[in-house]
Amino acid sequence: MARKPKGRPISGVLVLNKPGGMSSNAALQKAKRLYYAAKAGHTGSLDPLATGVLPLCFGDSTKFSQFLLDADKGYASTFRIGERTDTSDSDGEVIEAKSAAHITEALVAEQLKAFKGEISQVPSMFSALKKDGQPLYKLARQGIEVERKARQVTVYSIALLAFRPGEVAEADIAVHCSKGTYIRSIAEDLGAALGVGAHVARLHRTQAGPFTDAQAVSLETLADMRGEGEPEVLDSLLLPVDAPVAQLPSLALPEATAYYFRQGNPVMDARAFALGDEGDMVRVFDQTGVFLGIGTLADDGRVAPKRLVASNSGS
Rank of each mutant, 00 (worst) to 15 (best):
62 T>I: 09
63 K>H: 09
102 H>N: 12
127 S>G: 15
247 Q>I: 00
241 V>Q: 04
120 S>V: 11
111 Q>H: 10
111 Q>D: 15
161 L>D: 15
88 S>V: 06
132 D>A: 13
88 S>Y: 14
71 A>G: 11
242 D>T: 01
76 A>G: 13
223 A>W: 07
206 T>R: 14
164 R>H: 08
167 E>R: 03
297 L>W: 00
20 G>P: 14
208 A>N: 10
176 H>G: 13
242 D>P: 04
13 V>M: 02
152 Q>V: 10
77 S>W: 01
184 R>C: 06
221 T>F: 04
140 A>I: 08
67 F>C: 06
192 A>E: 15
95 I>P: 13
64 F>I: 00
245 V>R: 00
60 D>I: 07
287 Q>Y: 15
188 E>G: 15
195 G>I: 05
148 R>L: 09
70 D>V: 01
21 G>W: 06
91 D>C: 04
155 V>M: 06
311 S>C: 09
12 G>F: 01
118 E>K: 05
77 S>M: 03
169 A>I: 05
304 A>R: 01
112 L>Y: 10
286 D>L: 13
214 A>R: 03
272 A>R: 02
20 G>L: 02
186 I>A: 13
202 R>T: 12
198 A>P: 08
34 L>M: 08
223 A>S: 15
191 G>P: 12
219 L>I: 01
292 L>F: 12
97 A>K: 04
283 R>T: 00
222 L>M: 08
126 F>T: 06
30 K>W: 01
98 K>V: 02
188 E>P: 14
287 Q>P: 05
203 L>Y: 12
200 V>E: 14
195 G>M: 06
195 G>S: 06
102 H>S: 15
127 S>E: 14
92 G>E: 07
170 E>D: 10
292 L>I: 05
12 G>H: 03
177 C>I: 10
284 V>H: 02
43 T>R: 02
291 F>H: 00
222 L>D: 08
105 E>S: 15
293 G>F: 03
